[in-house]
Each structure stands twice: as structure tokens, then as C-alpha cells.
Simulated scan of single mutants.
Amino acid sequence: MGIFLNPGNTAFKEAVNAQIYIDKTELIDFTNQFINTPQKFICCSRPRRFGKSMAADMLLAYYNKESESAKLFAGLAIEKCKSFKKHLNKYDIIYFDIQECIDNAESIENTIEYITKSILKELSKAYPKAVHSNTKTISEALDKINQYTGNRFVVIIDEWDALFRTAPKQKEIHEKYITFLRSLFKGAGARRFIALAYITGILPIKKHGRIPVLDNFMEYTMINPYQTASCFGFTEEEVQGLCQTYNKDFIDVKRWYDGYKLNGLHIYNPFNITNLILQGDTNGYWLQSGTYGTIKDLINTASDELYEDILKLLTEQKVEADLYFSRIDMEYSDDKNNMITLLAHLGYLTYNNDEKKIEIPNQEISIELHKAIETLINNKNGGA
């Protein structure tokens, strides 16, 4: 058991043992249907604090062959699914968090080398007959292990987009990272040695600016969540249950935090609901927890057209938008559709697929948008 190779199930144990835990193990049954199929490359993107890392830890605990997790999943939804025992603790796992790797590498420029060297070291220790000192890439190592043993791997990457978000203008780093991802997930080798690839982050994986990243991943996003709508965040029914258990006013909670609409479901940010219950008061917990950029930064770079749309949204109007073919660029631009799409993925706007309209999700976001607009107006007026 290593840091990158089969790191264990401790993180999910902690999640299950928490005072507030909502069962999201239906995600496992969803991913199980794609194991060892052409659709085994999956990207689930959601805003910060939406339970992405917990879901990645859950998948790690379930698939990791060096863990014994049957008791950990006892009584949860996945235990009743036909696929439960078929894949439980059956695979080698390669797992890493890109943001954590950036921090550990001590510089963003060294991140890919740090990941590669660390994983190769652990693979060579676990499979010394297949991985030698002259093995240069992770994909080469995994392919050799597959040829030598027949083993297939589950690869899980958390915060996959952290390099793009942390260094939005460093194109050389982007290209290096894209090359790394393609080496790992594209081509005949990946089809042989990968049983499942699961990537999660804030941004979808296919449309980073003008650079095509990976086109073989199935995407499940805030705009098109498909079957994963209830797998991240808390549903309204779940929030109602928590309010009843902890004696909270659901109407007030709904006013503050409701607003994300995915496949007809009202989805709440779990970070807000958990902090509300633990700390007692409605507050802007999510916005206070820090984010990549701020609404103020985004609004200050907005075009006049986007500025007018946000003013309409603040008067509780919905605004028409078609986000299906928009590119996503972390370099703020005057492209209104790009900015709206980015705001939706970051969680500052919500998109109604049926109406093809955007709106402000809830009171927490509305308050922050009002502040940002006031700051922008003051700046335009010379600080008067």
C-alpha cells in the first residue's frame, strides 16, 4: 500500500463516520456499468465543496484490491446493487490529487515530473519484474504490468484541472500536462491496461480554451449531469431530512441555499448545509471558504453585455443562454458565452437545460453579486 498505488480506504472511513453523512454510493453502481468497456473514461465536474473528493475517496475504497471494504459499505445503497460484489476490492488503483501534487512538488513547473517519478517508484516496488529503472512513463509501466500479469488498473484523479486554474496563462505547463494526460489515457495501451478512469474537478475535460484535451471521456457536468445529478451535493429531500433531524427551518434554508437545478432535481451545496447544521446559522459558508478567483474578479473583467445580463439576473429575471458549444477559458475574456459557462461551472450561476436560461442560484450568491456590481459601479465612477 502506497501514497499513489492502492492508498487504502481511510479517507472514506472518516467520511462515513462523520456526524453528517449522506449516502452517495449509487455513483459506484453507475461507474461499475462502464468497467472494461469503451465508455470506461469518465469525468465528473462540479463546483468546489460539492463532494467530489469524497466521491473519489469512495471509489478508491470500493475498487482498491489491498483494502477490505465490504463492512464499510454495509447498509449503504450500493450493497443492494447486483454489481456490488463483482468489482469490490478487485483492482490496483492509481490515485492522486493534482492540487496536492502541485504543493508537494514545490513548484508548478515540477508537478508532472513529481507525479511520474513518485508513481514509477511505487510501481517498480510492487512489480519489480515488469517495471525497471529504464521505464520512463506511467503508461509504459502500466502497459508492461498488464502484459506481464494481465492486471488492469483503475485510475482516479482528483482536482484534474488544478494546473489550468492555478496557472491560467502558463501555456507551456498546460501543453506539458495535456501530453501527460494523453499518454496516460489515449491509445491502444490505455485500452489494454485501464479498467476504469475516473477524473473529477471543477471544469469539464474536453474544452479547455482552444486546446483539445481528451475526446474519449464521457462528461457529467453542472450543465449536463445526466445520470449523476443526485450523486453530488444534497438533494432537496435529503436536506429536508437533515432539517427535520437537526430542527432547522427548511424554508429559511431553501431561501438561502436552494437554486442548483440538475435534471429536474434541486441540488444544494453540501458544504453549506453541513456548516449550517454544525454551526447553527445561515451564512455564506461556501463563499467564505475561498475559491479560484472571486465573483468580484469575474465581474470586473465582464463585457458590457454580460454586465447587463447580471443586472437582469439580480432583479430575479432569467436570461437566455445556449452553453452547449461554448469553450471554457480560465483567462477571463470579453466572450459573454464563455464567461457565463465558466460562472455556471464554478457554481455562481445555474443553467436550466429545458428553458435554455441561466439564473442566480440562491441568496448567498445574490448577496455576493450585488457587492461585486456595487464595486464595479464605483470603479467606473472613479471611486466616487
Score class of each variant (00 low, 15 high):
E140P: 06
E140T: 09
E140S: 06
A141I: 01
A141K: 02
A141D: 13
D143R: 05
D143E: 07
I145S: 09
Q147R: 15
Y148W: 14
Y148Q: 12
T149D: 12
N151T: 11
R152T: 14
F153H: 12
F153I: 11
V155Y: 05
I156C: 07
I156S: 06
D158F: 05
D158L: 03
D158H: 07
D158N: 04
E159S: 15
E159Q: 14
D161N: 04
A162F: 02
A162I: 11
F164H: 09
F164A: 12
R165D: 04
R165V: 12
R165A: 14
R165T: 11
R165C: 11
T166Q: 07
T166I: 13
T166V: 05
A167N: 13
A167E: 12
A167I: 02
P168Q: 06
Q170G: 06
K171I: 13
K171F: 12
E172P: 01
H174W: 14
E175V: 07
K176R: 14
K176N: 15
Y177M: 13
I178F: 03
I178P: 03
T179Q: 12
T179F: 06
T179K: 15
F180T: 00
F180V: 02
R182D: 09
R182G: 09
S183G: 15
L184W: 02
L184I: 13
L184K: 03
F185D: 04
F185E: 04
G187F: 14
G187D: 11
A188K: 09
G189P: 08
A190W: 02
R191I: 05
R192K: 15
R192C: 10
I194R: 03
I194F: 06
A195D: 12
A195T: 00
L196K: 06
A197E: 05
A197R: 01
A197Q: 12
Y198C: 10
Y198P: 00
I199F: 15
I199K: 04
G201L: 01
G201K: 01
I202D: 06
L203T: 02
L203I: 02
P204F: 08
I205G: 00
H208P: 00
H208R: 01
G209T: 11
R210I: 08
I211E: 13
I211V: 13
P212N: 07
V213H: 03
V213E: 05
V213C: 01
L214C: 01
F217S: 00
F217A: 08
E219T: 14
Y220W: 06
Y220R: 06
I223D: 11
T228M: 00
T228W: 03
S230R: 14
S230C: 09
S230Y: 01
S230G: 04
S230D: 10
C231M: 15
C231Q: 07
F232V: 05
F234S: 04
F234D: 00
T235K: 11
T235F: 02
E236N: 02
E237V: 06
E238T: 10
V239F: 08
Q240L: 12
G241F: 01
